[in-house]
Amino acid sequence: MNRRTMPVTAALAATAALLLTACGSGDDGESKDNDKIAGADQGADNPKKSAEPSATPAEDQPDGVDLTLPKDINLVFDWKKPNDKDEAAALDDARHFVQSIYRGVAEQKANDPAVAAYAMDKGLSYARTQVQGRIDAGLTSTGTRRHFQEKVRKSPNGNAVEVSFCVDSSKFYSKEVKSKKVRKGAPGAASYDFFKIIMSKFPGDDDLWRASVVYVTEKAGQCA
């Protein structure tokens, strides 16, 4: 048995009732050619080494959840594992959360099980909205998306970890599902975003964390 298979299974059951009818916010990000997860301030209810692009087969199904991505979607995480056990687990699942969104995009399914496995509440709504927006626009993703300058901070009660990081999408593009046409644009300030994700501990399992709130700053100067 994987160390967290049963809790994740329970998480899927618990979040099934939260399936939202996600509405896309338009195609502004994709129309600029670089494919980014659009910025959204979701509000605040609660304050491994670097991974290889497109995780190895063993990492594609953590906790029994399928996070497999097409070969042309490379998610690079230039992150170092924290010494603190909770912070390390939360950072790892923040990576899984990002992967789950692009798994949904690749599969063209806003309700893909992977999306629900590592998200809850506003984090789940955010993830499904991003996936549905691309589906509505007839787009998927391709290229390399780099995540770097990670920082983690645990709440005093230990039930939440704030994970922040920069994203470079200068080599990550939208691809039309039907025509397979790749929309490329010149790199610039719009290629960089700053993410802050509140990872909340899953009840009954110290190792499973799910994204509950997502903040994004677009055109993030501190990341360029």
Rank of each mutant, 00 (worst) to 15 (best):
A51Q: 03
A89G: 11
A40E: 14
K36Y: 08
S31V: 09
S31P: 08
A51D: 02
N46Y: 02
K81G: 09
A51C: 04
D92T: 07
I37E: 05
N83C: 03
H96Q: 02
A51N: 07
K71V: 11
N74P: 01
P47H: 14
D93N: 09
P70N: 14
Q61P: 04
D41S: 15
D41T: 14
W79R: 03
D93W: 02
E87C: 11
D66K: 02
D63K: 15
W79G: 12
E59Q: 10
P70T: 15
L75W: 11
A38T: 07
P47D: 10
D28S: 09
A38P: 02
P82K: 01
N46A: 03
V76H: 00
A38F: 06
D60Y: 06
D92P: 11
P70S: 07
K32D: 14
Q42K: 09
E59T: 06
D33W: 11
A89H: 10
D92V: 04
K49E: 08
P62F: 04
N34P: 02
K81H: 10
E52F: 01
D66M: 01
D86T: 12
W79H: 10
G64M: 07
K49Q: 11
A94G: 09
P70I: 15
P53Y: 15
P53K: 10
E59D: 04
P70K: 12
G64K: 14
A44I: 12
D84P: 14
S54P: 03
